[in-house]
């Protein structure tokens, strides 16, 4: 399965999705969120919804010097936290800013395409869709 933005125009900027993603850890706050909502140049213009597109040939994994980001079958990457040295190259390599950063751990946080955020979007902005191969990637 793969997280996708169904209709960003419906986004009200409530950040429920961001809090949901971070809450997967069982804690409150935003440190762990792998989804980003920001205004598209002022609130009146609506919001940009940033989600990992699970690229097939992921630029983030390609630049990782330690092999901490492992490309997954069907797209996207998996983070092996113990290998990550926190250099931030992956963050710079993702031109849509979908590699988020946990400031406390000083390591990236990568979307696992679990769809938890989808359940908390009150306006159906997000959806979980079957990718090409119908592979499930939520094995984290």
């Amino acid at each position: 399965m793969k997280l996708a933005v169904k209709d960003a125009m419906r986004c009200v900027g409530c950040q429920s999705c961001m809090f949901a993603c971070s809450r997967r850890s069982g804690n409150a706050g935003l440190s762990n969120t792998c989804i980003g909502i920001k205004s598209a140049g002022g609130i009146s213009r609506g919001y940009t919804v940033i989600v990992c597109r699970s690229c097939e040939n992921p630029p983030c994994a390609n630049v990782c010097p330690t092999g901490a980001l492992v490309p997954k079958e069907g797209g996207g990457v998996r983070l092996i936290s113990s290998k990550c040295i926190g250099c931030g190259l992956c963050k710079d390599a993702c031109i849509i800013d979908a590699v988020f950063w946990n400031e406390q751990d000083d390591k990236p946080v990568i979307c696992v395409q679990c769809g938890y955020c989808v359940e908390y979007c009150p306006y159906e902005v997000l959806e979980l869709i079957k990718d090409k191969k119908g592979v499930s990637h939520d094995g984290e």
């Binding site: 971070s22 850890s25 069982g26 409150a28 935003l30």
Partner: peptide
């Protein structure tokens, strides 16, 4: 900021 608020009873 984007810090964490640690919760003990997560469930």
């Amino acid at each position: 900021g984007k810090q964490m608020i640690e919760v003990t009873n997560k469930k």
